[in-house]
Design a protein around this nucleic acid. Sequence first.
DNA 1: CTTGCTGTAACAGAAGCTGTTACAGCAAGC
DNA 2: GCTTGCTGTAACAGCTTCTGTTACAGCAAG
Lengths: 145, 145
Amino acid sequence: MAANSRLTIAVHALTWMALSERRGRQVLTSDQVATSVRTNPVVIRRSLGDLRRAGLVTVRHGVGAGWSLARPPHEITLLDVYAAVEPEPLFALHHSEPNLECPVGRGIRPALGRFYGDAEQALRRQLAGASIADVLDETLETGHQ
Amino acid sequence: MAANSRLTIAVHALTWMALSERRGRQVLTSDQVATSVRTNPVVIRRSLGDLRRAGLVTVRHGVGAGWSLARPPHEITLLDVYAAVEPEPLFALHHSEPNLECPVGRGIRPALGRFYGDAEQALRRQLAGASIADVLDETLETGHQ
DNA sequence: CTTGCTGTAACAGAAGCTGTTACAGCAAGC
DNA sequence: GCTTGCTGTAACAGCTTCTGTTACAGCAAG
């Protein structure tokens, strides 16, 4: 359990919402999503809260409350989801500042920052190439067997 | 401290070793590396141990012991280092298996595995394009100011 | 045999994630 | 207006990981 599964939870929720929408049910409660993901409703509400703040889903309060997609599934990319639930950079620099009397210690942080930025950018470009609609199609193809 | 700094520690160590080598000192102790990184020598030994298992550095025991690069710096890519110190996949799937009675729960794991694999591949391709020699050059350029 | 470093175990403190309980807030509809 | 059902969020426990640290056995050069 080294890596975290936040992206997985969020994508699962959105994919399930996309399928429900296709079937005519526009609004899902956190309880219904939690049943599919098999976790606690609060975990889902936390995740959908991130997605709401990013403008990917909308929420209705009161009786008949629940969540809906804010955009059609093919307009929600995995990068949108990643950016919404993973605010931290992929690689961390040193916890404590390295020795500035060493030439390497002096220059390595900005240098690494640039290499890390390029690497993360490559990841983001790839994530931007797939949408929730793609995940749903691929999921149904596998699940039908 | 969400992300971990293992890649940073390892690259810093290798970069410092590359500079020392260029200056004629072939062997460095974990204590000397730790002074530049400003951490405990055991942390360095753990990191260099990973790199040794991956064949990127060699170690000498006994009196006059220490570490050396196993290859010239331009032949050690950031992907080599990443692979050596980060065995875990970038994104985790669900902790507990999702609900298999739901079409999404049934197919989403293999589907996500494929999308995650593609994303990680993009990251690795980018990391493979830079070497320790590149990091050293960039570091010295910044540090000279 | 001395010496200096590696290799590794063991442990503490801090932090993050997941899962859970609890409860206030909100709005639709009777 | 009141009931009802859901959201939003705080608080907490258990688990895991990471960093930093101490301690000590093992190894090889001289």
